[in-house]
């Protein structure tokens, strides 16, 4: 008798999206060393435009190190050596000296909200002012648009001049996202953006990530695998500085190809 395999896509299969996005970031054979110690090994990955890419893996696997290579944050650490190609919009970012332009294009949100001890307004307007924008009306517009974009406008519009540090952790993190948006980046990197937040604030940030996808390319490091499953289109599993598997998120969490990925996502690692 014949055994038929039915390979139909399920309604929840994100891979069913028909339009394949353009590559925004192309990484080829990237190696990174902290002094003598190698932290990334031949990392190659294509990150698509206006998609959310999640990086998962155990502590020390290199995912945050990799994230920081995307806007050259590792340049700030002594003894870091990088080789390989890291191309964003066709330009190898390690061949260019314009780090300021790169960090304008590639914004970042950190694990803990790191607002400046100033008003909500001044926090969001800080970057544009540093870029030389002085016009009050223009700054007002940028602040409002950024806070709206970070889904926090309605909560803070009546207290823009109050200290940003008086907000709750979840609100502060969304203001951090607004501050990143204010620079009009094309890529936003998020390093465990909800690990310091309560569950409701976490869900709000996750909703925000989903809505931001329309305009930005997002790369997120997370230890929360359900979060990776909820927010991302593609997921890369890192282990010991290597990408073990990179695929549609749906595939990674339902039928991973590599046994090590399976062991990690099902919590049987170690």
């Amino acid at each position: 008798m014949n055994t038929t395999v039915i390979d139909r896509k399920t309604a929840t299969d994100k891979s069913a999206n028909t339009t394949e996005q353009q590559t925004k970031i192309a990484v080829k054979d990237l190696n990174l060393f902290y002094g003598e110690k190698q932290a990334l090994f031949d990392v190659s990955i294509d990150i698509k435009e206006k998609e959310v890419t999640a990086l998962i893996g155990p502590s020390g696997c290199g995912k945050s190190t990799f994230l920081r290579t995307l806007n050259r944050m590792n340049d700030l650490i002594d003894g870091v050596k990088i080789n390989g190609k890291m191309v964003i919009d066709g330009e190898d970012i390690y061949q260019s000296n314009d780090v300021i332009k790169l960090r304008t294009k590639v914004g970042m949100v950190f694990q803990k909200p790191n607002l400046f001890p100033m008003s909500i307004y001044d926090n969001v307007a800080y970057g544009p002012r540093m870029q030389g924008i002085k016009n009050k009306a223009e700054l007002n517009k940028i602040v409002e648009e950024s806070l709206r974009g970070a889904a926090i406008w309605d909560e803070v519009k009546d207290r823009l001049k109050s200290s940003a540090l008086g907000l709750s952790g979840g609100q502060q993190q969304r203001v951090c996202i607004a501050r990143a948006i204010a620079m009009k980046p094309e890529v936003i990197l998020m390093d465990e953006p909800t690990s310091a937040l309560d569950p409701i604030s976490t869900l709000k940030v996750e909703e925000l990530i989903a809505s931001m996808k329309k305009e930005y390319t997002i790369v997120i490091v997370t230890h929360n695998m359900q979060q990776a499953a909820r927010v991302s289109d593609k997921t890369a599993f890192f282990l010991n500085g290597e990408i073990i598997e990179f695929d549609e998120t749906n595939k990674i969490f339902s039928m991973p190809s590599d046994q090590r990925t399976e062991d990690y996502v099902t919590g049987r690692f170690g």
């Binding site: 038929t4 395999v5 039915i6």
Partner: peptide
């Protein structure tokens, strides 16, 4: 076992 639908 296979992660896909089989018609047996």
């Amino acid at each position: 076992i296979k992660g896909r639908k089989y018609d047996l």
